[in-house]
Simulated assay, not measured.
Amino acid sequence: MNYNAKQNRYENMKYNRCGSSGLMLPAMSLGLWHNFGDVDSYENSKEMVTTAFDLGITHFDLANNYGPPAGSAEKTFGRILKKELASYRDEMIISSKAGYEMWLGPYGNFGSRKSMMASLDQSLERTGLDYFDIFYSHRPDPDTPIEETMGALADIVKRGKALYVGISNYNAEETKEAVKVLKDLGVNPLIHQPSYSMFDRWIEDGLQDVLKDEGLGSIAYSPLAQGMLTSKYLKGIPKDSRADKENTFLEKSDITKEKLSQIQNLQDLAVSRNQSLAQMALAWVLRKDKVTSVIIGASKKEQIIENVKALENLEFSEKELEDINQILKR
């Protein structure tokens, strides 16, 4: 059965201007970091992507190494795009990145021109795209001149292989330097993708000010702190959760007694707002329009539906914000 997108898909999604650019991004974007690899169900992956699109999520965030195995998330998305969403390509923002280890040898990692260009071409082939809407340097490279990495990004735009470029995981000073190099090359960077959540607030220490001054948007990943900012772990570590699996970014040792106390107190506050903890955590990241978009991950479509409901209440009173700060200090 052919997929037909819902006619009312744009009615309830919030769209924010990305920095000083002309591009609008949905307040929530779908990330394909987990659950879209070859090891996952294609039908489930397809349902999540089409459900997101039906909810007005127009931005789909990839990277060369997403899977597992690395590269397979791009292949899965390319298959979904070709079979279900090809006629909607001009309504979508599709991004990918290069910078983390992708293939063996000295050229499959970090930010050399060789690595960036080869990775881009491979990602385009896997997705079946002619261009990405946004292409990122996934992380700074301490051993490659920033002029080389940013020069590769600038050429990617000039060659029509990406409409916009961005950076991810760069600190405030690295961001200033990267922006200057790109602007000197005649390319205005669009966006920065940092981690950001109630439990991970590093971007408040200078980076957000740089982004505002330079006219860049921002899109936050891991807004739920790998699932800790949900009710999932309040009664123990569920089987097959991220904390229960090996080789994930969340370890059982991260779920401490102190952290659980914070989560329970945040949960109580969320209930008083008529939200789930996850919904409140997403709304908090988007508060006061300091972040353009937040990347949500999912393992089933129902999670996407529930997360998008966070947009129904993005306002926080000053007391609620202070209560959250006090909880996080305990």
Rank of each mutant, 00 (worst) to 15 (best):
K161E: 05
K309N: 12
S87P: 01
A243Q: 07
S299T: 13
S222P: 11
N109I: 15
D205T: 03
V187Y: 03
I324Y: 08
E101A: 14
M150W: 02
Q208W: 03
L62D: 01
P26Q: 12
P223W: 10
D200N: 13
I57T: 03
I305M: 12
A63E: 01
R113N: 13
Y100D: 06
R113Q: 13
L211S: 00
P140G: 05
D289K: 15
L55D: 00
P238V: 12
S96F: 06
M28N: 04
D61C: 04
R287M: 11
Q226A: 11
N274F: 06
A86H: 12
T292C: 07
V187D: 02
G67C: 06
E147P: 07
V294L: 04
L269S: 05
L153I: 08
S299E: 00
G99H: 04
T50Y: 02
E204C: 03
Y221L: 13
K212M: 10
M280F: 11
D205S: 10
S197N: 06
P238D: 11
V49D: 02
I93G: 01
M116A: 11
D209V: 07
I134V: 11
N247G: 10
Y66E: 01
M116E: 03
E91K: 13
Q303H: 13
D155K: 15
D254M: 11
T144V: 15
D205G: 01
E306T: 12
P189H: 08
T58D: 04
M228G: 08
Q275F: 11
Y136W: 02
D143V: 04
A152G: 05
E177A: 14
W202N: 06
Y233E: 07
S222M: 15
E74C: 04
P189D: 08
H34C: 08
L62V: 01
W202S: 12
K252T: 06
K309P: 07
L104N: 15
V308M: 12
L32C: 13
